[in-house]
Design a protein around this nucleic acid. Structure first.
Lengths: 108, 108
DNA sequence: ATAATTACTACGACAGATGAAGTAGTTTTT
DNA sequence: AAAAACTACTTCATCTGTCGTAGTAATTAT
């Protein structure tokens, strides 16, 4: 299990990745992150939902409802063009980050 | 230049790395981080000195003075065995972190 | 004399992550 | 039929780490 401080700068990026090929909603995204990371990272509910608020405020995602006649109402999210641009920028930044941090890592 | 939120979980690790082959002090460590990262990461003074406090509180570093007859008095730091153990653990964690985050990175 | 560099400290603000708890509906187990 | 588990989300209060601003103090360069 990875400490959250490490991931901190990339929670938003992970969520955006999950929206790249179509709309989704909180619970599903949560499950998918868990599955894709092979249980190595589990995003806390409060972290996830506060990220949605932030991402929407920044214009990186849109939220909407679908009329479903079953279960509790879900809030769906969709990535915006600005969100995609932000995602791309974060991917590039990640390459640099890796290079930098790796200079401070020594196998002992 | 890398945003600090990304590095957040590794500032302490970077500082410990800088102490692996001997004692050093704030200003020198700061310069060395800057140089080693090829100016891609510059740790803020406040971040650096608050990290020292935290690391010492956790027993990962020791602080002491050397009697120098010139300049403003420096606080020197030295890594402890616990600090070394922590550093190693963070290095291993970093490998996992990289693997995980890379699953969410797509070159578009 | 003044500016720049070295070396550190204090303080307050802020963002993001978290724990705890709650709401509300559906499905599965006993 | 009752209880438990799962789906789906929300509110609130707290904590940690980073950062801006500012100040102290000494040395070296212009």
């Amino acid at each position: 299990m990875i400490s959250s401080d490490v991931i901190r700068g990339y929670n938003d990026t992970m969520i955006l990745y999950m929206l790249l090929d179509g709309e989704s909603y909180g619970y599903e995204i949560s499950k998918n992150i868990r599955r894709l990371s092979e249980e190595k990272y589990i995003m806390k509910e409060t972290t996830l939902y506060s990220a949605f608020t932030r991402l929407e405020k920044n214009g990186y995602i849109d939220s909407f409802y679908l009329d479903e006649t079953f279960g509790k109402r879900r809030t769906y999210y969709r990535i915006t063009p600005q969100g995609l641009a932000y995602y791309r920028a974060k991917c590039e930044e990640w390459q640099v980050t890796q290079e930098v941090i790796n200079k401070f890592i020594k196998e002992l």
